[in-house]
Simulated assay, not measured.
Amino acid sequence: MKNFTLIGASGYIAPRHMKAIKETNNKLIAALDNFDSVGVIDSFFPEADFFVEFERFDRHIEKLRYERDVRVDYTSICTPNYLHDAHIRMALRRDSDAICEKPLVLNPWNIEKLAHVEKETGRKIWNILQLRVHPSIIALKEKIENGPKDKVYDVDLTYLTSRGHWYYTSWKGEVSKSGGIATNIGVHFYDMLSWVFGEVKNNIVHVHTHDRAAGYLEFERARVRWFLSINFDVIPDEVKAKGQRTYRSITIEGEELEFSDGFTDLHTKSYEEILKGNGYGIKDAQKAIEIVHDIRHLEPQGLKGDYHPFAKKKLAKHPFEQSE
């Protein structure tokens, strides 16, 4: 049984990490969040100590080690994107491995610096890249690898996940903290695409606003038109009619890839691989971080060339923009 701590206990994704720690028969001994609405801990580890101040959390970990010889083996990090780098460093310097939510960091050069901290401390940084353990994605990768070596596939990626006005008030609405739409909701898809289809050859952005992004990515084995949005209005009417606020679709050569099921256990599967030493480290995360960094800084070209059909959908005002 390994000892875990968790930073960012009140966030949306934290319960998946708690569940993964529990289902892999390990123990959460302490958690930290500056927001104290964390009753979900009771469903998994009611005996875990909880702190709202980093200094007390840090002192507690040190006291456990030196007074009771209780060591932290892994630190799970579920904090806002811009804090990942600092919390990873803290975890490694407390002599634990770090298991960090995506995106690992916001900029490619942050990965290079973290590699030095890994070497310095002798500890390991693991990234949750859950689509790499999804059965449908694994089967797709095997199909591509076993298919014609010279074939370049035509792919459309659409991911629409509605967010309310709160999004723009939170850290997620600040590009400097979240990395923007493509980073915040799309990084795991870009990771999956590069994992399956190889190196990036071309990266073009057609549209990039507060609520959507669209572009074209060319990989060694695929030409990908992609569209991401947090605006409910862009969701297809047939999906809205079912009362759904999320829509994801990947088509390859016009054929839909069915991967809507099997998402609930992906964090547990990721943890199982990490605990066996087979998880994904910082080098595995690098391609996707480079892709989203470039998307964030590329000048949108508008509706030119081979763009995703959804890119033509009517643009929306920022919800906080004053009407004329």
Rank of each mutant, 00 (worst) to 15 (best):
G305Y: 11
D73M: 05
G279A: 09
E47W: 08
E220P: 11
E324V: 12
Y82T: 08
S260C: 00
E47V: 00
W171F: 03
E290K: 07
P135R: 14
F44G: 00
K141Q: 06
G215M: 02
P103M: 00
G305Q: 12
W109F: 15
Y216M: 07
G262A: 03
I204D: 04
K2C: 05
S162C: 06
I235W: 02
K317I: 05
Y159N: 03
D69V: 00
D150T: 11
D211H: 06
S162L: 11
V234C: 12
K2I: 04
R59Y: 12
A182E: 07
I291M: 12
S323D: 05
T264V: 09
A214H: 05
G277M: 11
L275A: 15
V70C: 01
V155K: 13
T268P: 00
A98D: 14
E62Q: 03
A31C: 15
G302R: 15
R59S: 13
Y190M: 13
L298I: 05
G281A: 07
D154A: 03
T209D: 14
F197R: 00
M18T: 03
E258M: 08
G277W: 13
V234L: 14
K63F: 00
C100K: 07
I61T: 03
A316E: 08
A222W: 07
Y66W: 04
I274E: 03
A241R: 15
H208R: 10
R68H: 06
L257F: 04
H206F: 09
E220T: 05
R71Y: 09
R132L: 08
E324H: 06
R68A: 02
A20Y: 00
E145S: 03
G8I: 03
V239R: 01
L266P: 08
L266F: 01
L266A: 04
G198P: 03
K119D: 12
K283T: 15
S260G: 07
E62S: 06
Y66A: 05
G11I: 05
K27Y: 07
P236G: 08
E23I: 01
H297R: 05
Y167T: 02
H293S: 12
I128H: 04
L228I: 11
L64E: 04
R245L: 13
N146E: 05
N278M: 10
R16V: 01
F44P: 02
D36I: 07
V175N: 12
E118T: 12
R71F: 13
R221V: 12
V239H: 04
R296D: 06
I295K: 12
T161A: 11
Y159A: 06
I99G: 00
P148I: 06
V52S: 09
Y271Q: 08
